[in-house]
Structures are given as structure tokens and as C-alpha cells.
């Protein structure tokens, strides 16, 4: 049994009067690839922000590598830096491609190793564009730079928030291949938010269906996609509209 990386207990997240998230209990294992699927507004991205410690839960606590994180207990910076996110819309700094990839290393005060930056760019197939201004890149290229920027810091956890939405099939395949390899070879834990059921099936070992801020069903991919227990999960997996 792989040891737990995250333990969430009694988590709620409110924005004003509105409760966005309510998760009674969730354990995420080290080295696993977990997909969060569900309709828009289900709380998937909010959950990712909590897992990256970008927001605090209104109630409850998250244990990460055995250390607690809650509204009144921030996570130590070195631990927080073991996690990063690739967002749907890659925000690149107004600098060169190479400077964008170096950014995370500089934040950590590490001596920037050009080799590491180049290796990350090579991995996403953009080494030739290293010294181009980042903002001149296409959407697919920009997302690959965002991925290289995450890869170079070698996180324990890579959170992916619809990373391939609006990308062409070639870029989708390239990104999926990189993150799958990262998970299999380096053991990086992947938590993927996607609307694409097929992508979730391809990448994830476990999948969770979220609706109205709650996890309706969480199981291994085979069971989740082939024999879902909950009728709402079954409908979603069949491609029907679920609200």
C-alpha cells in the first residue's frame, strides 16, 4: 500500500455565503495519478487551489506529507514548494522562454543550471525557441513552456487544471505523454482536472466524480469508467449532461 501524500478531513470552502466545496474525507496516495472530473462549477479547480495551498480551507485541515495546513496554520514554504500547478491558461512572464523556465528555480534561490532548463525545454520540444519572447508563442507552445516551467523544479506533486483544453491533438498527445512519463518514471503524483473523459481514462489510475462541491464517487479507473456505482457518475461517463 502506497503511503498517503494528502489527507483531507472535514474540508469546506466558502466564498461569502456560498459554499463551493465540502469534502468529508479524501486521501491521495504518493505516486498516483488521480483525475477529477465533473461539470463546471463542481469545485474541481477550487480543490486544486487548496491542494497547491494557494487558498486556505474555510473549515477542516489538509495534511500534506504529514504536516497540517488549515485556515490558521500555513504550510512551511519548503513543503509548499513541493507542489505546483499548470493552469488551463498559461500565464507566461513577459520575458524569454528560457527566463520563464528558470523562474521557479530563481524563486528557490537555486543556482540556475542551464542544462536543467535546456533539458526541460528539450522535453517539451521547444529548445529551439529558448530565447524567443515568451509572449510571441502560440497557445500550444505557451502551454508546453508552462509545463517545462513546472518540470524544471521537479515537484513531488503536479496539479493540472485542464491543461490541454483548447489545444490541438498533437499538443494534447505531447503533453499527455510527458506527464504520464513523469508519473511512471519519476513517481510524480499527478492530480488532473479535466472535462475530457477519454483523457482521464488515459492518464489516471483513479478517478473522482465531483458535483456541487462534493465527491460523488471515487474509485480505480477501471471500475470508475466501466462499472460506476452512482447513476450520476454513470451518466457523466456516458457523456450525458449532469447538473
Amino acid at each position: 500500500m502506497t503511503e498517503p501524500l494528502y489527507r483531507l478531513e472535514g474540508i469546506t470552502k466558502d466564498y461569502g455565503e456560498r459554499q463551493i466545496l465540502q469534502i468529508d474525507s479524501l486521501t491521495i496516495r504518493r505516486r498516483e495519478a488521480l483525475a477529477l472530473v465533473g461539470p463546471s462549477g463542481a469545485g474541481k479547480s477550487t480543490l486544486l487551489r487548496l491542494l497547491n495551498f494557494l487558498e486556505t480551507p474555510t473549515n477542516g485541515r489538509i495534511q500534506f506529507q504529514g504536516v497540517s495546513f488549515s485556515a490558521d496554520q500555513p504550510l512551511p514554504l519548503p513543503l509548499r514548494r513541493r507542489v505546483t500547478t499548470v493552469f488551463q491558461r498559461p500565464f507566461l512572464l513577459n520575458r524569454s522562454v528560457s527566463a520563464n523556465v528558470r523562474y521557479g528555480l530563481r524563486l528557490r534561490g537555486r543556482r540556475v543550471e542551464t542544462q536543467a532548463v535546456e533539458a526541460a525545454l528539450e522535453q517539451v520540444g521547444l529548445l529551439a525557441l529558448a530565447y524567443q519572447p515568451a509572449r510571441t508563442l502560440s497557445g500550444g507552445e505557451a502551454q508546453r513552456v508552462a509545463l517545462a516551467r513546472a518540470l524544471v523544479i521537479q515537484p513531488d506533486v503536479l496539479l493540472l487544471d485542464e491543461p490541454t483544453a483548447n489545444l490541438d491533438p498533437q499538443n494534447v498527445a505531447l503533453i499527455e505523454n510527458i506527464v504520464a512519463t513523469l508519473n511512471e518514471r519519476r513517481g510524480t503524483t499527478l492530480i488532473l482536472v479535466t472535462h475530457n473523459i477519454f483523457q482521464a481514462r488515459r492518464l489516471a489510475g483513479r478517478a473522482a466524480f465531483m458535483l456541487d462541491g462534493r465527491i460523488v464517487e471515487l474509485s480505480d479507473s477501471a471500475a470508475f469508467f466501466n462499472n460506476p456505482r452512482d447513476p450520476r457518475t454513470a451518466a457523466f461517463v456516458r457523456g450525458e449532461m449532469v447538473y
Binding site: L54, L77, F87, F91, L93, Y103, G104, L107, L159
Partner: peptide
């Protein structure tokens, strides 16, 4: 763009950074 703050914090930036 407000997305910048979220992105750089996700990469490990402190408030000052």
C-alpha cells in the same frame, strides 16, 4: 493580469516575490 499572482504563487513565490 490577476492570474499572474496565482501562477507565480503556484510556482512557489512568497508574497514579496
Amino acid at each position: 493580469d490577476p492570474q499572474l499572482a496565482l501562477q507565480v504563487q503556484a510556482l512557489g513565490a512568497t508574497r514579496w516575490q
